[in-house]
Design a binder for these strands. Structure first.
Lengths: 331, 331
DNA sequence: AGATAAAAAGAAAACGTTTTTTTAGGCGAA
DNA sequence: TTCGCCTAAAAAAACGTTTTCTTTTTATCT
């Protein structure tokens, strides 16, 4: 195999311990030895073997980010935030995808048990809350973007209830009182929270909740199209539609356009996520923007804190969101 | 720390070697011992420590996929293919992002040198071809999606020259002779190859190449918009436009729509990649589809072969692409 | 019963590091 | 001189496995 620390030691007439000390920049080694050993390492093309090092120190300085799939466009910003925070402290972030399979997710979580990584961040977990809680008792684990109800684990997210409420309140402030909601069958916590916000906004404005105005589908664009067809086909159709994601909202607008609806006038639309396409697609979509980069950065900072300290921080951090107003609400 | 193989051995009155043999399902251990040890492992909640194992076997069964950023939507399918092939052979694929920074890419490649992973796949490398070639001499490395000119390394991609030629030939077959090209300043190999295909198609049809019909920008949608504005503003504007990516093509169509151009009739458009939005955006975009899943699958299969064998396969595999015809070409 | 082979399991070495413990010199103070 | 202290470096232990080498036990054949 490759050249090991032993080879370097032999070649520079010094013990392995000394080479190690040079490698780790310990103080108690003479300048000339440092110089000599460094030169030999250079000459021999020595590369320290992480496996030995990690075993001895029992740390890997690696953090695993577990996601369902990479296609969610805003993951990119979250991961950039994670990378930045990790790199600043000499950690690496590795990503693994579950492909929406809970079993595969569990397989990846086991990297924590086998000491393959020092910590893990779940961006939308598929396990039971109790499973995660249990795991979090002995391992460094965190949730990002999606909180889990009743899960005692470090979490960084936004207040989706408030965000949903803000969006719907805005629609109401524009004078609308029949407001449709397009959400998902899948009860992800963020969907549930955004729906909750929708209801709260209605309630605060004394608008009765109408079951008929809610359409539950999938996360696909097509589902937005179907949902919009359903909503606009009602006897008393809504004049404003809040979708729990931009993808869905774009599908919804697609249907409205095909029916000649004057978007931003006849019917106004609000999305969620502020994906790139929401200002590429015409008309541009009003939406909720969440601080992706910052969430990624914070979750890693907090997680590394936990890795380094004895008493883990299991708080839920909620970062502020904001509304982005564009043509779809007539702005 | 956690419970180790030694603890299990002690608790089940057996040597560590035997526990290891049970763990690895070796044949020469009696049924009752297997049963006993398995039970004790269960009871104690034993989890083998990868660090010890990996060091001893000097393999990690992990492969690193290096990408610039996760936002490229078709990466998702490639990674799915990679995961599937890897999982089938007991490997894990870990992803890391370079954020377009060559230095960070190099940092990640060093995981190969430090034995942190058994192999690496680059999806669009930023290093010099010679650097990669050199690295590939002693390490298991592969390129996927983007080949590198003069780089002696295992590669799985499509024939971008032919793909570009096919697209442009199709535009020509529709009777067009003034054909615009929107590509990128950044000389990525795929861009270069697709441009080459564009020229070949012109040549084969005796259409003189006109420098003016080529616009070079970025990979952003906005660049497509700018490019289209430029092209349609020419004295002799093109009647067909080939963009080297769907994102760009969509930006281009966006401009055309805003100018009241009848897409698919007055001007026809061809993209590349078949991203999800190419059939969400109206009019639906004709485009080149590449076999993402298969490329991912194949590159991992070949790479694992290399990991396991002495003589590495450094072939360039080119998988077949296909044309997807939609409204933007009047189909 | 005794010899021999086969099976099961223990002991110890090995993987490549880091860290703790020892050792060897050099130097100053009593 | 002797003692202790400091620095530099060597030696050895440790991390948790797997694997090789031995040893013990069991089974089989004459």
């Amino acid at each position: 195999m490759g050249v090991t620390i032993k080879d370097v030691a032999r070649a520079s007439n010094v013990s392995v311990a000394t080479v190690s000390r040079v490698l780790n920049k310990h103080s108690n080694v003479s300048d000339e030895t440092v110089e000599k050993v460094t030169r030999v390492m250079e000459e021999m093309g020595y590369n320290p073997n992480c496996l030995g090092r990690d075993l001895r120190k029992s740390e890997t300085r690696r953090i695993l980010a577990i996601i369902a799939a990479t296609e969610q466009s805003f993951y990119s910003d979250v991961l950039r935030g994670m990378d930045e925070a990790a790199f600043a402290q000499g950690y690496d972030v590795l990503i693994a995808t579950t492909h929406d399979d809970p079993e595969h997710e569990m397989h990846l979580l086991k990297m924590l048990l086998s000491h393959s990584v020092d910590g893990a961040v779940l961006l939308g977990a598929k396990q039971e809350a109790s499973t995660i809680s249990k795991l979090a008792e002995n391992h460094n684990i965190a949730l990002c973007l999606e909180r889990m109800e009743g899960c005692n684990v470090l979490t960084v997210t936004i207040d989706n209830v408030k965000a949903g409420k803000d969006a719907v309140n805005y629609l109401i402030s524009k004078g609308h009182r029949r407001i449709g909601l397009i959400s998902t069958e899948t009860r992800s916590q963020s969907s549930v929270d955004r729906e909750k916000g929708y209801r709260q906004a209605l309630k605060e404005n004394n608008i009765p909740f109408d079951e008929k105005l809610v359409y539950l589908g999938t996360y696909e664009t097509e589902s937005g199209t179907t949902g919009c067809r359903y909503l606009l086909g009602l006897e008393e159709p809504p004049t404003a539609i809040f979708s729990i994601s931009d993808m869905i909202a774009i599908g919804a607008m697609n249907y409205a356009i095909s029916k000649g609806v004057n978007i931003g006038k006849d019917v106004i639309f609000f999305g969620f996520d502020n994906i790139a396409y929401s200002h590429i697609f015409v008309p541009h979509l009003s939406t909720v923007e969440q601080p992706c980069f910052l969430q990624g950065k914070l979750v890693i900072e907090k997680l590394i804190n936990n890795i380094k300290s004895e008493i883990p921080d299991k708080s839920v951090y909620m970062l502020p969101h904001s509304l982005v107003l564009r043509e779809s609400t007539g702005d």
